[in-house]
Write a protein that binds this DNA or RNA. Structure first.
Lengths: 211, 211
DNA sequence: TGTTCTATCGAACAAGCGTTCCACGCGGGA
DNA sequence: TCCCGCGTGGAACGCTTGTTCGATAGAACA
């Protein structure tokens, strides 16, 4: 792979800039104009070189069909996770309904796809109050959860304790008919309760703190 | 804003899908074909409605000039933050050098731009050990920091205590010649020390926990 | 000096493309 | 019944756009 000529570098930069501004790629003649190139064939010539070097991908015979392949400036799909409510000790955990899945909702947090790991039934709640500090979750933190009733041992879950009428974030361990709820904070003691008393509302996927 | 007709919803979904696959928007005739619409004018008619509802943006007279405005499926530039090392109580905090800024580095975490808030001198460290639990930061958490020596009162900073040879994450308050280091955990007590003993390595931008 | 490769230039072609116009059917309201 | 808005169909217009072709000039090399 050869080095890029100044002209090719400039073309690449312009494509980046243009996509960043318009959300769709430029036409060859727009590249020509912006980079002060006298002919469209010269643009085509240099685009072929860029394509050969693996920096862009082009669909032939299709207008504006330039796709950036370089890591810098490449765009990724961001996953919009709806924030469906708040979670606090004495309140039931909000459960997503059909409506709250609407991605047109107001309150969303955008995350890179690898942070939700391909899961699609993912929602987020905002933590209210200091009751979750034993899970190392602060007031105002955002907890991203996957809606599920099942959880493997050792996974951090949002659980509703029916008898105590209390929501909590703990690591779940089944021990016979009982359940051990272990705080993330290793210095704190676990809670033991009957399996029937625990209602798993979701698995914790990520915790995010933006001060 | 009216509700979308099934046809409009289908068009919107197709545009999303197409962009996701090709990295450039579809033409009107491609929408027509994919959504089994008999005429291009019908597509245009519905696109105008989508535009009026603020779901897309179109540049007139320009081919493939459809831009998605809805959060779902929109593509955003992702910021690649380099993870330059680990942070532990008894270790100095790693400081980014010219080389570690390289976005071609192996260990990076991609974040949506609003999570780094336009700051560009941002790096991340992985937390090792349980020594930061008073900052509600767990073993394995990732702390995103902005490199700066200055910090306003009340901001969470990564500080190096020279005398104690200790790294810590605390909220910083200047009180005369002394400094109060307040844990994020409201139930824990602050530390007081001389201003000269504290070396601010960076401000905490975000804390992320991916179990 | 002749050859070859690289880069450029201008023009033209043909397909792709957004737009526009007119016509039609349908349903609701006056 | 007439009228009007809405959604649809079909076709044509004219600009946009990717592509192609021939010609040219300079550099490197034998």
């Amino acid at each position: 792979m050869k080095e890029l000529s100044p002209k090719q570098q400039r073309i690449l930069d312009f494509i980046r800039e243009f996509i960043s501004e318009h959300d769709y790629p430029p036409s060859i003649r727009q590249i020509q104009e912006a980079c002060v190139i006298s002919s469209t064939s010269v643009v085509d010539y240099n685009l072929r070189i860029l394509e050969k070097n693996g920096l862009i991908r082009r669909d032939r015979e299709v207008s504006r069909a330039i796709e950036l392949l370089t890591p810098a400036g490449r765009r990724q799909r961001v996953v919009a996770v709806p924030i469906i409510g708040t979670i606090a000790a004495g309140q039931p955990i909000p459960v997503p309904t059909e409506e709250t899945w609407s991605t047109y909702s107001e309150d969303v947090i955008e995350l890179p796809p690898d942070m939700v790991g391909g899961r699609d039934n993912v929602y987020a709640v905002r933590v209210k109050g200091d009751s979750m500090i034993d899970a190392l979750v602060n007031d105002g933190d955002i907890v991203v959860m996957e809606q599920t009733a099942a959880a493997a041992d050792g996974e951090m879950v949002a659980a509703w304790l029916k008898q105590e009428q209390e929501a909590t974030l703990k690591k779940l361990y089944r021990e016979g008919s009982r359940v051990r709820l272990q705080p993330a904070n290793a210095t704190m003691q676990p809670i033991y309760t009957e399996a029937g008393n625990v209602e798993v509302q979701g698995k914790v996927v990520t915790v995010i703190r933006v001060p």
